[in-house]
Every structure is written in structure tokens, then in C-alpha cells.
């Protein structure tokens, strides 16, 4: 299990990196944390001819908040940095809560926030969470830059809108509205495994304790993050009750089209989706209603 040969380039500036991507296009593969790519290379399932290593791009490693409270995370910020960051805990508690569930400590030492997103693994927590939190991604190429909303970013399994010459450089997470609650629920075989099904919930209550906004985004049930839009519409404008939550959770399966693998059948995945949706909504609404829940 040794990787095939490749040409290795380690640019020290984003500009330089973009130049290499422009030059090599489809032949090049970006090496961020490498925690998904290198196993594939060791199995020789991936054999890129050029590796552009972003690990020297110190400029892409940062966590800060903008004046309007928007959280900005540099694409090469490592998972453990996000996990331990107070700003993230305060501004994006859902991300904070998810971090320890991502793989294992050793993977989090090396893996990067942007790498996880660009990899577009449908079983990954962070892609889903960014969608649930209305995140935006700054994508750069030698041609220029663009901001892509998280919900438009993922095109399918391991595919995103990123062009071959383009790279993800920054993630923006807007501040949470007052009275917003969140939850991440997942069912996994072993503690650190990819979830059989997972779901992120973000809900906001209005002044009358009715549901103003609700998002329910799943992972491991499709080709990418899958949002249950109709199910959450059932909640909007309504006073939240256990029965209503249950009904919404039951409804999610109409919008999901999971596939089977050796660990879970379609039926089991759909069942888990209902159960986890209910649990996530219960927890999220409880958090939203809890005194002291306010905007970051």
C-alpha cells in the first residue's frame, strides 16, 4: 500500500498555488490535510500526477469574526484548532459540538476545515453543518474569486462547484439569530465512524414562541448534504409541540433517497433519519427556548 509517484509542489502563497492549479488543471490534486486523499493514494485508488500541497499557506489558517458577527475560518485551519477555539464555541456552537465527532484525534490534528468541505464527502458532518448554518464559501482561482452559498456548493458525491483551477480559501458562517437552537444527532457503528445517518438541526423561535425558521440537513443519506425542506415547513409559524416535532420528523423520509451499503439498508436509514430528526428537533427547540439563548 504505497502511493504511486507524483510531482510535488508546495507553494508558499495563495497566488502561487493558484498559478500551479491554472497550469496543471485536472492533472493536479490539492493536498490539504491529506487525511482522506492519502489513504486513497496508499490504496492507489487515487494517482494524481501532481500534488499541490497547501500546508505552507499560513495565510489560510485563521479564525476570526467580522464586525457583523460573521465567523470566518481559513480553509487550512486544522480541525483541532477549530475544536479548541473559543470564538467558534461562542459564535457557532453547532460546529463546536460537531468537532469531536469528526474522526479521531490524530485525524483532527492534521485534517483541515476547508479540506473536509472541498472533499464533499456525503458522510461528513461539516458539509452538512455549513448548509444548516447558511454558510458561504470563498473560492479562488487565478481568474478571480467568488462566494458560493453552502447549499449551492455540493454537486454530488465527492463533487462540488470547484473548478480544477479553483480552490476553497475561506468559510463564512453568519451569526445566529436570537432564540436560535441547534443540535447534531448521528448514529454510528463505532464512536468515531462515519455516521450511518446524521442530521443537523437549526431552529429559531419568534417572540410568541412559534417556530420562525427551521433547517434540518442530513448527511449519509444521499450524494451530499440533503435538506428536508417540506418537513421543516410544517413547523414554520406554529407553536412547537412534541406531536408537531414528531410529525415533521416522520415527514422527512419523503425528501430523502438514501442508498444501502453493508452497514445499513435503505429502510433502516430512513428509520434512523426519522428518529434522529425528532431527537435533533427536540434538542434544538429546547435550546432555542432556553433563557439566555441569544445572538452571538
Amino acid at each position: 500500500m504505497k502511493p504511486a509517484p507524483f510531482e510535488y509542489i508546495a507553494p508558499t502563497t495563495v497566488e502561487e498555488a493558484l498559478g500551479h492549479l491554472a497550469e496543471y488543471g485536472y492533472d493536479a490534486k490539492i493536498l490539504a490535510g491529506g487525511q482522506s486523499l492519502i489513504p486513497m493514494m496508499n490504496f492507489r485508488l487515487a494517482q494524481p500526477s501532481v500534488l499541490v500541497d497547501l500546508n505552507k499557506l499560513a495565510e489560510l489558517s485563521f479564525i476570526r469574526s467580522e464586525k457583523d458577527g460573521e465567523l470566518r475560518i481559513g480553509a487550512m485551519t486544522r480541525h483541532f484548532q477549530v475544536e479548541r477555539d473559543d470564538l467558534v464555541a461562542e459564535h457557532a456552537p453547532l460546529i463546536h459540538e460537531a468537532m469531536p465527532k469528526i474522526a479521531t484525534p490524530q485525524i483532527r490534528s492534521r485534517g483541515t476545515f476547508g479540506g473536509s468541505i472541498a472533499h464533499a464527502d456525503p458522510a461528513a458532518e461539516l458539509t452538512t453543518i455549513c448548509v444548516a448554518l447558511d454558510g458561504r464559501f470563498r473560492c479562488q482561482s487565478a481568474r478571480g474569486e467568488r462566494w458560493v452559498p453552502a447549499q449551492d456548493f455540493f454537486l454530488g458525491m465527492f463533487t462540488s462547484v470547484l473548478e480544477p483551477d479553483e480552490m476553497l480559501v475561506e468559510i463564512a458562517i453568519p451569526p445566529m439569530a436570537p432564540r436560535t437552537g441547534w443540535a447534531l444527532e448521528e448514529a454510528a457503528r463505532r464512536a468515531h465512524d462515519f455516521a450511518l445517518v446524521g442530521v443537523g438541526a437549526v431552529v429559531t423561535l419568534d417572540a410568541k414562541d412559534c417556530c420562525e425558521r427551521a433547517r434540518l440537513v442530513f448527511f449519509s443519506v444521499g450524494d451530499g448534504p440533503v435538506e428536508a425542506v417540506k418537513a421543516t415547513e410544517m413547523l414554520i409559524g406554529k407553536e412547537v409541540s412534541p406531536d408537531l416535532i414528531r410529525a415533521a420528523a416522520e415527514a422527512v423520509t419523503d425528501e430523502l433517497d438514501p442508498s444501502a451499503d453493508i452497514h445499513a439498508s435503505v429502510q433502516y436509514r430512513l428509520h434512523l433519519a426519522r428518529v434522529l430528526a425528532r431527537r435533533a428537533l427536540e434538542k434544538a427547540f429546547a435550546r432555542a427556548a432556553a433563557p439566555g439563548t441569544q445572538a452571538a
Binding site: 489513504p39 490504496f43 457503528r189 463505532r190 464512536a191 468515531h192 465512524d193 453493508i262 452497514h263
Partner: peptide
């Protein structure tokens, strides 16, 4: 946790530690 899954062609569908689940300290 641990079951080798062969398909009808005799291909092992979980020939890695990512898919063949050896319990960790958490289990």
C-alpha cells in the same frame, strides 16, 4: 462489529479497517 461481507462474486466488500469494524476503547 466484525463481519466479513462477500458479494456473490467472492469479492470482499469491507477489506479495510474503515469498513471492517474492530472495536475501539469506546466500545
Amino acid at each position: 462489529y466484525e463481519k466479513l461481507v462477500f458479494d456473490d462474486n467472492g469479492q470482499l466488500l469491507n477489506a479495510s479497517f474503515a469498513d471492517y469494524l474492530i472495536p475501539t476503547a469506546a466500545e
